[in-house]
Amino acid sequence: MSEINVNQLLAQMRTMSIEAGNKPAVSNDSGDFAAMLKQSIDSVNQAQNTSNELAASFETGRSDVSLAEVMIASQKADVSFQAMLQVRNKLVDAYKDVMSMPM
């Protein structure tokens, strides 16, 4: 039976927590909304492509892909798509509000 080094495990957890808490700084000169929206859509597309590739690999019987990996990738793709869909709905609502304003 292998022995777990608790101090090493705690150090790894602290490191991961710090990394998860670090958010990239947003610079003022890169505030192009269209570029940010395109990047978000590309990110969702990449998540869906990754999910499809993992599913296809699992279906063909590759031993390096587990069912858990496939399900997690699928859920990540679904959640990111649903988030993008909600952003789109909010943008459409905002557009309708602006267009219905009297001039």
Rank of each mutant, 00 (worst) to 15 (best):
Q46I: 09
Q82L: 07
Q75F: 02
P102V: 03
S100F: 03
Q86W: 15
E3F: 03
M13V: 14
S43R: 09
S30M: 10
Q46F: 13
D64M: 00
S74L: 00
I72F: 04
D42S: 09
K90E: 01
V70D: 01
R14V: 05
A35V: 07
S51C: 04
S30P: 03
V92A: 07
D32F: 08
A55K: 14
D93Q: 01
Q86T: 15
M13R: 15
M84A: 10
G31F: 05
K76V: 02
Q48N: 08
M84T: 06
M103N: 13
R14S: 08
A34N: 05
V70F: 05
N52I: 14
A25R: 07
I4A: 02
L85C: 13
S27E: 12
N49C: 13
A73W: 06
S66T: 13
N89Q: 14
I72H: 06
K76M: 01
Q82F: 06
S63W: 04
D64S: 11
D78L: 04
E69T: 07
L85S: 14
M13C: 15
D93M: 08
N28S: 15
N52L: 15
S27C: 09
K90N: 08
A73Q: 02
Q75I: 00
M71H: 04
S80V: 04
I41P: 01
A83E: 06
A11S: 06
V44Y: 01
F81P: 00
A77Y: 04
V26S: 02
Q39P: 02
